[in-house]
């Protein structure tokens, strides 16, 4: 019985490798007691038939295991995706029972609208700054929290906590802190002798404000991933480096960083995805609503605004499709060019 149950997973690997293996040597044949070695007589066609039957049965079990998953992923991931692409070809006012098919008009509008490039520029700045900031500060915090300090467990919990807080609550509290008149940040900056910027009304500073809060909220996630990475680096390596006379910076650069590269890569992919898509929405919405003067309108926020404020569901779907293509491209590039540099020990 257990042998039968083991089959589907093996079959899955088999299906993946099918193109690489010579057909004459199917896997599992040599395994004693496995279904592949049933009383094979001298008659070669009978063996082949038997194998075919077995394979047919295995395929059926394979399908039985995968179809529920595939169906659900198809239903909740791919169907909305394709629907979205279809909606992007419509002139459709949200809520309206009817829509007009306009072909690629929405795409033409997006590419010819001067605002689009501004939103794209803001998206790039926001993504680069949040991803870079989250990973860099996360690594720094993880390095500190990896030391033997008093209250380390508590500090780790505190660092991670913002990540699980509601973005709306975080955004509102930080808005109070950034308030140019009553906030706690303005006096701090003034104490240094600089005139505090008007975070609320200057587009560039508003963007900086949202980026700061985003990094603060998400660095705990990066820190936890890095902390796990730091703890599996063997002590011998550090000791060996110390014996060779390497200082702390050299050790960090030549041992710690390369050995953390799987975490860095993983974080690059996941933090980029979350920063460019849904995670940034709640902060932007609760803090600036994309303003002032569109200064914090990323593509993600534009999707919301076109769809739910302007009611242009078709155009909103167009922007969503464009963002999807960009995300896909960025992720593929990361996989293609960065994964090579990853050092899996």
């Amino acid at each position: 019985m257990s042998a039968v149950l083991a089959e589907p997973s093996r079959l899955a690997t088999m299906a993946l490798r099918e193109t690489q293996r010579p057909p004459s040597a199917p896997p599992g044949v040599s395994r004693p007691g496995g279904p592949g070695t049933d009383d094979a007589g001298p008659d070669r066609t009978a063996v082949a038939r038997g194998r075919r039957r077995t394979r047919g049965r295995e395929a059926l079990i394979f399908l039985a295991f995968t179809i529920p998953n595939l169906a659900l992923i198809g239903l909740f991931t791919y169907r909305p995706l394709f629907n979205n692409v279809y909606y992007s070809l419509l002139q459709w006012n949200l809520g309206s029972p009817t829509a007009r098919f306009v072909g690629l008009d929405n795409y033409v509008n997006w590419f010819t609208d001067p605002h689009s490039w501004n939103y794209l520029r803001i998206t790039v700045i926001f993504t680069v700054a949040t991803v870079g900031g989250t990973i860099a500060v996360g690594l720094l915090v993880a390095t500190v929290l990896n030391q033997r300090l008093h209250g380390r467990g508590f500090a780790r919990a505190v660092v991670f906590a913002p990540y699980v807080l509601s973005g709306v609550a975080v955004g509102l509290v930080w808005m109070f802190m950034f308030d140019p008149q009553f906030g706690v940040i303005a006096p701090v900056i003034r104490a240094v002798g600089i005139d505090p910027p008007n975070w609320y009304n200057q587009p560039g500073w508003a963007l900086a404000m949202v980026i700061i809060v985003y990094v603060w909220k998400h660095l705990g996630y990066a820190a936890v991933v890095y902390l796990a990475g730091l703890q599996i680096i063997p002590r011998e390596l550090h000791e060996a480096a110390a014996l060779d006379g390497a200082g702390p910076w050299r050790t960090f650069r030549s041992i710690t960083l390369p050995l953390l590269s799987p975490m860095t890569f993983f974080l690059l992919v996941t933090v980029t995805l979350s920063s460019m898509s849904a995670q940034s929405f709640e902060l932007i919405h609760s803090m600036t609503r994309g303003g002032p003067v569109d200064g914090t309108t990323t593509l993600m926020y534009q999707i919301y605004r076109e769809g739910f404020v302007a009611g242009r569901a078709g155009y909103s779907a167009t922007v969503a499709t464009i963002l999807f293509v960009i995300l896909l491209g960025v992720t593929l590039l990361q996989m293609r060019f960065l994964e090579r540099k990853v050092h899996y020990s």
């Binding site: 079990i61 198809g74 239903l75 459709w92 309206s96 007009r100």
Partner: peptide
């Protein structure tokens, strides 16, 4: 196996249920 196939069928049915939707053009 039968239950699995049943689940698959249920999934397919759900897929069909939601296949309509959105605006009419």
């Amino acid at each position: 196996r039968r239950r699995f196939l049943g689940l698959g069928a249920a999934g397919a049915a759900a897929l069909a249920l939601t296949a309509c939707g959105g605006p009419s053009t």
